[in-house]
Design a protein around this nucleic acid. Structure first.
Lengths: 188, 188
DNA sequence: AAGAACGTACAGAAAAAACTGTACGGTATA
DNA sequence: TATACCGTACAGTTTTTTCTGTACGTTCTT
């Protein structure tokens, strides 16, 4: 995991510190829908001072190469790690994306955006359908009332998802940093 | 699930529409770390036109009351549903929180905030520790270099988490709506 | 105070997810 | 072209999560 394995053994304190951070990072990865061990893998890569191969990860994590392969792919899909090309090496190399703001943005763009858009589609379709049903049951006041209530709910949900969509836009285009700058505002 | 179960049977189209929306909502609930069936429970409550009891949920979902109990608690913890008091009824009643903006905010306040603060604490502690170790190894250039690199990483992560903390603040205090209004800006 | 109804703790069963070892297709090396 | 090595598909195993039924403590009714 470090520059020099021998050196690391020498210093238990450093090793312990890293382990604590890795665990802390890994534990919170479930927010991204990532399993604990894949979270640990991320933590490992975070401290690695050079891109790692699957074999290296496996030996560090004491896990199979297959698991490393799937774990890395999960992280790759979320753009939390990048594949690195290094001439001479036949093995694939991976390193974490150190720009965490970008990682955050990508996560929303990849995961949330997909959900949002799927829901928007379904809601649009469903509201149309309600209109159609409402036409058929125009004579039935009870049914009409129920349909109206449903439609109002869908409309609210729709508005919310559109808002969410615009919010994710601000993550992507960087407008969010106008509201919340990376540098904390100076205390007065 | 509706006002009048008989009526609903009459109209397959409405039922189908609701089912589609419920599934769509439920499917995307994994973003909140919620299981599919709890997501469906949420969808059910979303369309319910009155607060429901555990027994009613169970019969609609065709699942045990125990499962409803745990499912509701999960949703309650995330403030996605509210407990409702109705005089006369001995049973607990629940309804969804229809303010989805609030639900979004609560989610980040409950889940993300906790992670962020835990990480901030660990990072602070770890940076202090690095300083201590660095003092011991002041004579060792290689070790010093490694410690510096680690500390730089921690510092970056720390800055990111503080940013995230401030971002969540804007969700909570409503500042986010200045940047992304609930009402979409009028198209020109 | 006794009885009925409610929600949930708990233990076991069922289902889902994570993990491993083997096998195989593909690419670089010889 | 043959060989070695790499990453991953796949099937089987282990671990974790979800779900159920029973049992129990509490609260309301009588």
């Amino acid at each position: 995991m470090g520059l020099d394995p021998v050196k690391e053994e020498q210093n238990a304190a450093l090793h312990k510190m890293r382990k604590r951070v890795i665990e802390s990072i890994g534990r919170n990865m479930d927010l991204y829908g990532i399993s604990l061990s894949t979270g640990h893998l991320y933590g490992l890569l975070f401290f690695a001072d050079k891109p790692m191969t699957l074999d290296e990860m496996g030996s560090e994590m004491k896990m199979s190469k297959t698991s490393m392969s799937t774990g890395v792919r999960t992280l790759l899909d979320l753009k939390m790690v990048n594949k690195v090309w290094e001439k001479g090496s036949r093995k694939d190399l991976y390193e974490v994306e150190y720009d965490w703001y970008q990682t955050f943005t990508d996560f929303f763009d990849i995961k949330w955006r997909k959900s949002v858009e799927a829901n928007i589609l379904v809601l649009r379709k469903s509201m149309d359908e309600i209109d159609k049903i409402a036409n058929e049951y125009a004579e039935d006041p009870e049914m009409t009332d129920m349909l109206q209530k449903d439609k109002a709910k869908l409309r609210d949900a729709y508005a919310y998802y559109e808002w969410l969509d615009r919010l994710i836009d601000t993550f992507e285009n960087g407008d969010i940093y106008k509201l919340v700058p990376k540098e904390p505002p100076a205390k007065e």
